[in-house]
């Protein structure tokens, strides 16, 4: 298992699926844009502004999932000194940060016509902003701290605190009174989104995931080459 996860094997495997990803991304994106902008119905109260959901919700999910994964990898690396996980979390962090930013900005754009304000300091919105700050601190701490040992320690600290924040983001709408509505899609229990709106939502999520994979592969490749370049000097 760990042998398969070695940088060499992962690298060869990633290059194989790279071609497939570049082929399906564009057609998939066009189909889901047509679905989310034109084919899906407007909401019974919100009208057409509900279409912002199709970019807002999947990007929020990705921002949360990405940080959970980064947190897990960082802590894993801190405990077991598994070098390859550094390469993976370095490749993931910029993606998560971008989607966190997208989530906050599209949320603000959505808030204006529906709530009547761009921003509110309620628990959900504030904890999401804190998540963005965690992403930025995390990226800074591996980019600008040269000492590998120190940087992995700081990253693990940020990851631990960030994971607590992830739970606060997730459950903020249930614990406290917030302007933000509670979750519509639940893993356990009923989903309160009509089926005709779930189609574009799922498609959009798929597009974002494929896009994430594309960026991740480029970033991971760059990290591997950077590592090998250091190795060249030792030849």
């Amino acid at each position: 298992m760990l042998n398969f996860l070695s940088p060499g094997n992962l690298f060869v495997f990633f290059n194989k699926i790279n071609k497939l990803i570049t082929k399906i991304l564009l057609p998939l994106a066009i189909v889901s844009l047509v679905f989310s902008l034109f084919l899906s119905p407007p909401d019974y109260i919100q009208g057409d502004s509900v279409r912002i959901m199709y970019v807002h919700v999947p990007s929020s999910w990705i921002a949360l999932a990405c940080f959970s994964l980064i947190g897990f990898l960082t802590i894993f690396n801190f405990l077991f000194k598994f070098k390859n996980s550094i390469l993976i979390y370095k490749s993931l962090a910029p993606i998560g940060m971008s989607f966190c930013l997208i989530s906050i900005v599209t949320g603000a754009i959505w808030g204006q016509p529906t709530w009547g304000t761009f921003w509110a300091w309620d628990a959900r919105l504030t904890s999401m902003l804190i998540l963005l700050v965690f992403y930025i601190l995390f990226i800074f701490s591996y980019k600008f701290i040269q000492n590998q040992n120190l940087s992995s320690k700081i990253c693990a600290t940020l990851a631990a605190l960030g994971i607590v924040n992830i739970f606060i983001v997730k459950y903020s709408v249930d614990f406290w009174s917030t302007l933000h509505q509670t979750s519509s899609v639940k893993i356990l229990g009923d989903t309160s989104i009509d089926k005709s709106m779930l189609v574009p939502l799922t498609l959009m999520l798929l597009v974002f995931l494929v896009y994430c994979a594309l960026i991740f592969l480029m970033k991971y490749r760059a990290e591997i080459i950077r590592m090998k370049k250091k190795g060249l000097k030792r030849l």
Binding site: L33, L37, R51, P113
Partner: peptide, 12 residues
């Protein structure tokens, strides 16, 4: 988009 065009298009 029924008056929401500016918001929807700018978000996308």
């Amino acid at each position: 988009m029924g008056g929401y065009g500016l918001y929807v298009w700018s978000a996308f």
